[in-house]
């Protein structure tokens, strides 16, 4: 372990503060799943990934991460800045004119850490598979990670990709699903039910593990376990339960904060529940 669980939890608290302050400042963006995935991103970037913040697009010899549900850009931007890809002060430019921190992540403005544009849903897993195949062709033993939302699994391209990866034995790939059960129009089970996701992934040939994405100890352990499963002929799917809005009592567990910004008063209450551990940007 590079950090203790308690240290990682402190980082995640600061990341949540960043997410809320970024979205509040421009009164737009997606705080719900950003908060829900703060623990996962912190564990990934501060503990799990073998990565180099002196970013190169090729990323030869290092682990690569692809975000498919690009609307949770606030949490990714915060973690990239906090782990050294760019200065944390740049977080203040989120969604503003001429910023590298676009509403949805892009390579177009040259932000270090981002290797593909995402936002139009359902495309990230395919891209991650391509990057994983390239590593195999090159004999590069490092790994490729992807994160998808659960709602975006309603997009058909995901199932093309889910069918492809096991058949082609893309076993250097760890895909996580943010299984929060919420999407813009309501709970997934009311909008278009995902039914038994674990059984579906297993039927497609993935090695499926489950985890609690809001328990720092458990998500860290789960990701290390996933690494131990690589190279054995199957891609790995981490079905990660989270709660949208986790960390702020009035935001947790509802789709209402999927794409809504807090008011001044709401921000103050929310920040009161999240320790400032590394200094606000």
């Amino acid at each position: 372990m590079k950090h203790t669980i308690s240290e990682l939890e402190d980082i995640a608290s600061q990341v949540r503060r960043d997410c809320l302050r970024m979205v509040h400042a421009v009164q737009s963006g997606h705080p719900g799943a950003s908060l829900g995935c703060a623990d996962f991103f912190t564990a990934l970037y501060f503990e799990v990934l073998n990565h180099n913040p002196k970013f190169t697009m090729a990323g030869a010899g290092e682990d690569l991460f692809f975000l498919s549900n690009g609307h949770i850009s606030p949490v990714w931007y915060s973690v990239l800045a906090r782990s050294g890809y760019f200065d944390v002060s740049e977080l203040a430019t989120f969604r503003k004119l001429d910023s590298r921190l676009q509403g949805h992540p892009t390579t177009h403005e040259g932000l270090p850490g981002v290797r593909i544009a995402s936002g139009s849903l359902g495309q990230g897993l395919s891209v991650a598979i391509g990057a994983a195949l390239a590593k195999k062709i090159d004999g590069d033993k490092s790994l490729v990670y992807a994160l998808m939302g659960d709602g975006e699994l309603q997009e058909g391209q995901n199932w093309e990709a889910l069918m492809f990866a096991p058949f082609h034995k893309v076993d250097n790939l760890i895909a996580s699903v943010d299984y929060n059960g919420q999407q813009i129009d309501g709970p997934t089970e009311k909008v278009l039910s995902l039914e038994n996701l674990q059984a579906k992934f297993e039927a497609f040939g993935w090695h499926v593990i489950t985890s609690d994405g809001n328990d720092m100890g458990e998500i860290t352990k789960a990701l290390h376990y996933a690494i131990s499963l690589t190279g054995k002929g199957k891609p790995i799917l981490n079905l990660m339960s989270t709660q949208m809005g986790y960390g702020v009592d009035f935001m947790v567990g509802t789709h209402k904060w999927h794409g809504a910004a807090p008011s001044d008063a709401q921000l103050e209450v929310a920040l009161g529940q999240l320790k400032e551990t590394a200094g606000d940007y």
């Binding site: 030869a60 593909i116 395919s126 891209v127 598979i129 391509g130 195949l133 391209q157 990709a161 492809f164």
Partner: peptide
């Protein structure tokens, strides 16, 4: 659709 995404991913290391 998957083919276009995989192609995009393959470019990343050249």
């Amino acid at each position: 659709a998957n083919m276009m995404g995989i192609a995009a991913g393959l470019t990343i290391n050249g």
